[in-house]
């Protein structure tokens, strides 16, 4: 088992918890999609895994090692990478500088150079724009850069929060192709997606979150076909996804 989350409670400031005793497991070498209504705790879950939020209760184990309460940089060092919803680039740095920042934890200059070359191989569009300031990239290019940046440290688990948000359909296809490529590289991907139909048809396995807890899990195509879940959680979402 890659990631084991048990009874985690987490939230913001002194507000009531968003995650209320959530438990779920992630296996090696699979792709996952987390769906659920707004406020279900999907983003909170990712932020808690990567250490931006500290769980108030519960345990999080990664490859058998307890990681709850570690700092984000320590968790990243263990091999969990995060792409937040807003893509979190450094707007005033160039594409190359952003990629180099992605390898911030790598102190070996040669390794850094190698990784950079590999990223440029996989993402030739980024090579063309290597000296462009990230803030001036288009939304799709920014998302590609954010995804490419994670390759710099070759994580075992990649957590991606709504990568399709605000992107044109054609670009969304590219984003999902990239994620498939990452899967082939041996990464486990944990994807949060508002566009449930799209996310589930891409993933192997689905998690349905509601009110801060796991309501249902199963093979992704099964969830799509399960009439009960469709009615409860997918109805509105599916409609929106097909807009």
């Amino acid at each position: 088992m890659l990631l084991d989350i048990q009874n985690v409670e987490a939230g913001y400031g002194s507000a009531p918890p968003v995650l209320r005793g959530l438990s779920l497991q992630v296996e090696d070498n699979r792709s996952y999609c987390v769906i659920g209504p707004n406020g279900a705790g999907k983003s909170t879950l990712l932020k808690t895994i990567v250490g931006i939020l500290r769980p108030r209760r519960g345990t999080i184990r990664f490859q058998g090692e307890s990681i709850e309460g570690l700092r984000p940089d320590e968790i990243l060092q263990k091999g969990i990478c995060f792409v937040p919803q807003d893509r979190s680039l450094f707007p005033e740095m160039t594409v190359q500088e952003n990629l180099r920042m992605g390898g911030f934890l790598i102190r070996d200059r040669r390794l850094l150079r190698e990784r950079l070359d590999r990223v440029y191989e996989l993402f030739p569009i980024l090579r063309d724009r290597t000296n462009q300031v990230a803030g001036t990239l288009s939304g799709g290019q920014q998302q590609m850069l954010a995804l490419a940046r994670t390759l710099m440290i070759e994580p075992k688990l990649l957590c991606v929060d709504e990568p399709s948000l605000g992107l044109a359909p054609g670009i969304v296809d590219q984003v999902f192709e990239t994620l498939t490529e990452f899967r082939k590289q041996g990464m486990t991907v944990l994807l949060v997606e508002q566009n449930a139909v799209r996310g589930l048809s891409w993933a192997d396995w689905g998690f349905v979150l509601d009110l801060g807890a796991l309501r249902f899990e199963g093979p992704a195509d099964g969830i799509l076909e399960n009439p009960q879940i469709r009615e409860l959680y997918l109805g509105r979402l599916a409609a929106r996804g097909e807009e």
């Binding site: 940089d73 990243l76 995060f82 937040p84 979190s88 450094f90 707007p91 940046r149």
Partner: peptide, 13 residues
């Protein structure tokens, strides 16, 4: 990096 985007800085370690 921290000046430009605190969360992004955390995300890259």
């Amino acid at each position: 990096a921290t000046m430009q985007n605190r969360v992004a800085a955390q995300v890259v370690g």
